[in-house]
């Protein structure tokens, strides 16, 4: 009954589109993260930004950027046009702006959760603001933000599917194309859904790994503390 040939063929076709989905995700994740820190720093502007980008659908933000920006001559003749003309770039831009709003909110909550006493202890040692931020505030904040951040990562993966609406050939775009040609909705859907679920699973595992490495638990054996490697550059890059 089950057409394995079709299923595997579809699965292969969809997997071929995986790099696009991953590209969207990773670009938006990184850009959004950086943007979020920036938004947090500009606190006056932050509330409005977060409100606007969390209060409206991503789809309309995407269409605004992809279709709307091209209307203006000033943009079409600018140095950015080669980028803004591309559907992929527009999608990454829209995704970044949107995820930055959610991430900024998460970071804001995490910042409030940092125990003020530990910050005072740093000040009492004579730490400068930069040192305080780097050595005390940021590490503690990141640990608090991790669970919510993993949820946001999954939401971002799902959001990449919208790029298909502006002619980006990601997994959903290819799936839609196959459905319209073959009308075998159920099978294609199952393949595509499986791919996204696997992606989410991997992300959840990665976060669990990160959480385990960052959670202060003393290991019983007496080896030179792995904690001595704490907050090494590798870890800081992950978040």
């Amino acid at each position: 009954m089950i057409d394995f040939a079709f299923l595997s063929d579809t699965f292969l076709k969809l997997s071929a589109a995986l790099p696009v989905t991953l590209g969207l995700f990773i670009s938006a994740f990184l850009c959004g993260g950086v943007l979020a820190v920036g938004i947090l720093a500009l606190s006056a502007f932050a509330r409005g930004y977060i409100l606007v980008f969390r209060g409206s659908p991503l789809m309309i933000q995407l269409f605004l950027i992809y279709y709307g920006l091209g209307q203006f001559g000033v943009i079409r003749h600018s140095v950015f046009w080669p980028f803004l003309r591309e559907p992929f770039t527009c999608a990454v831009l829209a995704l970044s702006l949107c995820t930055a709003a959610y991430t900024a909110e998460i970071l804001r909550g995490a910042l409030l959760a940092v125990p003020p006493g530990q910050v005072e202890a740093g000040m009492a040692c004579g730490m400068s603001r930069g040192l305080l931020l780097r050595r005390i505030i940021a590490p503690v904040m990141l640990r608090y933000a991790l669970p919510a951040y993993s949820t946001e990562a999954i939401l971002l993966v799902k959001s990449t599917a919208l790029a298909s609406l502006v002619t980006v050939w990601d997994v959903t775009g290819v799936a839609q194309q196959i459905i319209q040609r073959t009308y075998r909705t159920m099978e294609v859907f199952l393949c595509a859904a499986a791919i996204y679920l696997i992606l989410n699973f991997i992300i959840v595992q990665l976060y669990a790994l990160l959480e385990r490495r960052l959670t202060p638990v003393h290991k019983a054996e007496k080896k030179p503390s792995p904690a001595a490697k704490r907050l090494s550059p590798e870890e800081n890059k992950h978040v």
């Binding site: 959903t172 799936a175 459905i179 319209q180 009308y183 859907f189 859904a193 996204y196």
Partner: peptide, 22 residues
């Protein structure tokens, strides 16, 4: 929970719309 929170909403709509229509 895992399924409906993990699959893009767009895909679910495609399933119900195209699948349903079919």
């Amino acid at each position: 929970s895992v399924i409906f929170r993990g699959i893009p909403e767009l895909l679910v709509i495609y399933l119900f719309y195209f699948g349903g229509s079919g």
